[in-house]
């Protein structure tokens, strides 16, 4: 996770420097998109959430407290945006009564990517809170402390949520007959 130099880039952004903005966006656009994809399981929605995340982050740049790490702040926005999107999707589903699908994207071309789809399906079956800790731990690869900082929950809650999520994933895998 690139973090060095964030403070200087943010300072330059506050002075209207679009080159600094471009650098900061390049640094985080891929991880933010990946985080949103793992939360949502849909490429188009993940791109929308990534876009909204940066938009909100820079709209509120004056409120950003440099005491905290920029990546924590931007991931927090991304997770919240993803959860909002999931909740909105649930409300639509109540109206539509059609189940949300996992966007297979380009994965369906190769057989060995079946595992990825199964995995994303299982992630989608977790609660949003559980999915967020799994996503941050396994795909963003950050520590319990950092996860707690992003989700604004105690480290103890991170651990218990992570354990419950992993137990559920194990059960789903066994049910699906997948041997990890």
């Amino acid at each position: 996770m690139a973090r060095d130099g964030d403070a200087a880039l943010i300072r330059d952004c506050r002075n209207g420097d679009r080159q600094a903005l471009g650098s900061l966006v390049r640094r985080y656009e891929r991880p933010v998109y990946n985080a949103a994809y793992r939360m949502l399981g849909n490429a188009d929605e993940a791109a929308d959430v990534a876009q909204t995340t940066f938009l909100k982050a820079f709209e509120k740049l004056d409120h950003y407290n440099p005491k905290y790490r920029f990546f924590s702040w931007i991931y927090r926005i991304a997770v919240n945006e993803s959860i909002d999107r999931i909740n909105g999707r649930s409300r639509l589903r109540e109206l539509d009564d059609s189940p949300a699908s996992v966007d297979p994207g380009p994965d369906d071309i190769e057989d060995h990517r079946q595992l990825s789809r199964q995995l994303q399906s299982s992630l989608n079956a977790l609660t949003e809170d559980q999915r967020a800790v799994v996503m941050l731990r396994h795909f963003v690869e950050i520590s319990y402390r950092e996860i707690g900082e992003i989700l604004q929950i105690p480290e103890k809650t991170v651990k218990s949520r992570l354990f419950t999520a992993r137990q559920r994933l194990k059960d789903m895998l066994e049910h699906e007959g997948v041997r990890p």
Binding site: R38, H138, K170
Partner: peptide, 14 residues
């Protein structure tokens, strides 16, 4: 096992 399984996820390209 679960960690290993999650580690096999294909990276997603934006």
């Amino acid at each position: 096992a679960v960690s290993h399984w999650l580690g096999q996820a294909e990276p997603v390209e934006p």
